[in-house]
Nucleic acid binder design. Structure first.
Length: 789
RNA sequence: GCCGGAGUGGCGGAAUUGGUAGACGCUCACGACUUAAAAUCGUGUACCCUCGGGGUGUGCGGGUUCGAUUCCCGCCUCCGGCACCA
């Protein structure tokens, strides 16, 4: 038994003293920026899920370092956010204090896992020297017109007392606290991410080394859809409503127009409608309704005294204000063609509107998925035209225009909470909204008496008069600071750039260093960030490309997603169920090395796994075996078979780690270890290679064994063994003998044997000779198979 | 409903330019060591049968092929994303 506690303590200290993981900036080497998603340092400490991501990324970083790359493998803290603030409210303590304490705990726990971070580059998003640049980026967005003030209804969480972005919602509830979210019109800052929708979508095709599932999630999230706007004149208002449609071929079936209560058109209608009060009441109710409770039964209110003119038939059509029409999608107005849409059909039935079938087909109405070549009917001169062809014809005839719309909406960027980056703007009565000049950044968070959210469009910062009142940077007159803060996603949208140049106080990142390190070569983290952090970060990156801060179109060249670690037997780990596994406790019990090998070996990295407290014995046994072998090492050369296995293992382990196939890499190392265990002698050469290949997985124990082999320097600074394809070739191969498609046995021949030699071997095997007697060889594949029929 | 991913022993999983299915690990059984147990070491561990042999088998049903976990067609189930998206 090796003493993992003593070993791990000793080497952790040694590594720190010698700073062996400091980033090597030798520009003669190829660079490798191996980034792992930094954590929110929560009070509940490190989870095995964290451990899995960090260990995977670390194994990769360690191998690349040993393969001679200059590796940048940093860690930091995404520390703004609500939990620290909630804690501060409860305990009347500055969130910075709780945050600092949590970071200390997290860092201590992380350091127990044997991770090779360069701590000289540690960053913290709540550090003013960091968020100075988050604010600086916001100002660049503002100056480019990509940040704007809006009064549209937003998602409001009544429990967190703040507005939220669409990305912060989970099926109509607050992603963080689970409360039903309301729609609430309020002043807010919004980022024009939709301006970048096309680039965000199209550039996904350039990300060859991202998993398809993440790209698909982003495509769904952006949700590009091509259609038309069709103008309907409104009488007697005299204005025009543009409706959005992807189905202009059903235009002759149009029996109503529906406008979103959130649309500004409603104000215009109100001036002329006969039932103003009813419409007002409906709109108010729609605005305050909880998103999750929105009536799926499609209600609406008819605008009395108002009608729309059908652009083709010139007939008058009723106009409804209806909450099933989304304010933020398309034009906020649609036309209803009930015969060919389930929702329009239900609406028409409810309000007794006409239903006219305009595309031929059998069956009950509504007829939904009609074929593209189904002919139009009841459509005047277009009768008989196939529906797909009819789309542009009818759209053009109606005066429509082609338009591309997105499901993605602009990013609601302001939060009415304390613990976030202050938005660096000053409101001036004369000059309007003025950005804080660079020289005055960062705008630091002042101390407040109470962190309690106000429940209004202002954050607790609004109560600090001496902070709020600030002279206008432009005219010097009296101004007021913006009191909204940024969402938690702000810092993580660009942090990868700060690791490159963490101590620079004059620029966000030195451009030479940026060119040296970007893009991130491999980014490791959770799938849950696919439609949040990873979209935001790509968006900011493209803006920074446009303003010359960065030099690449994409921030992350390759992406590896980690699977969830479930509780023993499956299901979510939760404190309530008492099934949470504490990685530090596991490290104490069996050692970080065994935990790392276990995590690496248990399943493919991206796959969900259930924790298995029994299976963890295997990796520990494996390490014990490797440790025990040291007493049998001899200075002899490996025999041919062992040398072959040694090189085969080096090649496969190198390949496997490169593509995060840690499970099969560990299997290969176990096979080699078992072979050494069975061998009469343990050749030093083979054992040395084994220790070096194992080093990325088990960094502590391999240091001890490396020292035993007579080395003074760390194994992690040694060079990863080089595999030789020639040596990895086997001398003999086993060939399957198939008769009528069934494998009936095997013969062993030397590699590269031709058919004659194989047939001779078969003849020497009585059973196989009888089986194949009188049959013809159908297929012979060298070194693989011979098939008789 | 739309889009993506996946279904292999008691369990986690391995193998795909089509070529011996079940590597490696866990579990379990038996044996060695021990007064005994643990640990360790050794052997075995897909299923079935009439067991020195034979048959079946990679979610289900078809197909292509000398040969299919791998390719094609049609289903089922599970996981993830989106969803009143016009």
């Amino acid at each position: 038994m090796y003493d993992h506690r003593a070993i791990e303590e000793e080497w952790r200290r040694t590594w720190e003293q010698n700073s062996i993981y400091r980033t090597d900036e030798d520009s003669g080497k190829k660079k490798c920026y191996a980034l792992v998603m930094f954590p929110y340092p929560s009070g509940s400490g490190l989870h095995v899920g964290h451990a899995r991501v960090y260990i995977g990324a670390d194994i990769y970083a360690r191998m690349m370092r040993m393969r001679g790359y200059q590796v940048l493998h940093p860690m930091g803290w995404d520390a703004f956010g609500l939990p620290a603030e909630e804690y501060a409210i409860k305990n009347k303590q500055h969130p910075q204090e709780a945050t600092a304490r949590n970071i200390a705990v997290f860092k201590d726990q992380i350091s127990r896992l044997g991770l090779s971070y360069d701590w000289d580059r540690e960053i913290n998003t709540t550090d003013p020297s960091f968020y100075k640049w988050t604010q600086w980026i916001f100002i660049q967005l503002f100056k480019k017109g990509l940040a704007y003030e809006s009064n549209m209804p937003v998602n409001w969480c009544p429990s967190c007392k703040t507005g939220l972005a669409n990305e912060d919602l989970d099926a109509g509830t607050c992603e963080r606290c689970g409360s039903a979210v309301e729609r609430k019109p309020m002043r807010q800052w919004v980022l024009r991410i939709t301006d970048y929708a096309d680039r965000l979508l199209d550039d996904l095709d350039t990300l060859d080394d991202w998993s398809d599932s993440v790209k698909e999630v982003q495509r769904n999230w952006i949700g590009r859809s091509d259609g038309y706007t069709i103008p309907f004149a409104i009488e007697p208002v005299g204005s025009v409503v543009d409706v959005f449609t992807t189905r202009p071929d059903t235009l002759f079936g149009c029996s109503f127009i529906a406008i979103s209560p959130e649309s500004t058109l409603v104000d215009t209608l109100l001036k002329h409608a006969e039932n103003k009060e009813e419409i007002e009441a409906y709109r108010t109710r729609a605005h305050t309704a909880k998103a999750a409770e929105t009536d799926k039964a499609q209600t609406g209110v008819l605008a009395q005294g108002i009608s729309a003119v059908h652009p083709l038939t010139k007939k008058n059509i009723p106009v409804f204000i209806a909450d099933f029409v989304l304010g933020g999608y398309g034009t906020g107005a649609v036309f209803g063609s009930p015969a060919h849409d389930a929702r329009d059909f239900a609406f028409a039935v409810r309000y007794n509107l006409s239903i006219t079938q305009v595309i031929a087909g059998d069956g009950d109405l509504p007829l939904i998925n009609t074929p593209v070549d189904a002919p139009l009917i009841h459509s005047g001169e277009y009768d008989g035209t196939p529906s797909e062809q009819a789309k542009p014809l009818l759209a053009n005839a109606a005066g429509g225009k082609k338009i591309t719309v997105y499901r993605l909406q602009d990013w609601v960027f302001s939060r009415q909470r304390y613990w976030g980056e202050p938005i660096p703007l000053i409101h001036c009565g004369k000059c309007g909204v003025v950005p804080v000049p660079d020289k005055d950044l960062p705008v630091t968070l002042p101390d407040v008496a109470s962190y309690e959210p106000t429940g209004t469009a202002e954050s607790p910062l609004a109560a600090i008069e001496e902070w709020v009142n600030a002279p206008c940077p432009q005219c010097g007159g009296a101004g007021k600071r913006e009191t909204n803060t940024m969402p938690q996603w702000a810092g993580s949208s660009w942090y990868h750039l700060r690791y490159i140049d963490p101590h620079n106080s004059t620029v966000l990142v030195d451009s030479e260093k940026e060119k040296q390190w970007m893009p991130v070569d491999i980014y490791t983290g959770g799938m849950e960030h696919a439609a949040r952090h990873l979209i935001y970060a790509r968006f900011w990156h493209k803006v920074m490309l446009d303003i010359g801060v960065v030099s690449t179109a994409e921030p992350y060249a390759a992406l590896r997603t980690v699977g969830i670690v479930q509780a023993e037997g499956g299901g979510k780990m939760s404190k309530r169920l008492g099934n949470v596994v504490d990685p530090v406790a596991v490290v104490d019990a069996i050692g970080a090395d065994a935990l790392r090998v276990y995590i690496a070996h248990i399943a493919p990295f991206s796959q969900t796994v259930a924790w298995d407290s029994r299976a963890i014995a295997g990796p520990r046994r494996f390490l014990e075996r490797v440790y025990a072998l040291r007493d049998r090492v001899q200075d002899s050369a490996p025999d041919r078979a062992l040398l072959q296995l040694q090189h085969e293992t080096i090649l496969s382990v190198t390949d496997d780690i490169a593509v995060y196939r840690f499970n099969t890499a560990v299997s290969s190392l176990m096979i080699l270890t078992n072979a050494l265990y069975d061998a009469d002698t343990v050749p030093k050469e083979t054992y040395t290679a084994l220790i070096q290949m194992l080093a990325p997985f088990a960094p502590y124990i391999t240091e001890v064994l490396w020292r035993d082999l007579g080395h003074n320097e760390s194994v992690h600074l040694s060079h990863f063994p080089q595999g030789n394809a020639e040596s990895a070739q086997r001398d003999t191969v086993v060939i399957a003998v198939q008769v009528l498609g069934k494998t009936r046995g095997t013969v062993t021949v030397s590699r590269g044997s031709n058919q004659e030699i194989v047939l001779r071997s078969i003849a020497e095997n009585t059973a196989l000779a009888n089986r194949t007697k009188g049959l013809a060889v159908k297929v012979f594949v060298e070194d693989r198979i011979i098939s008789f029929v």
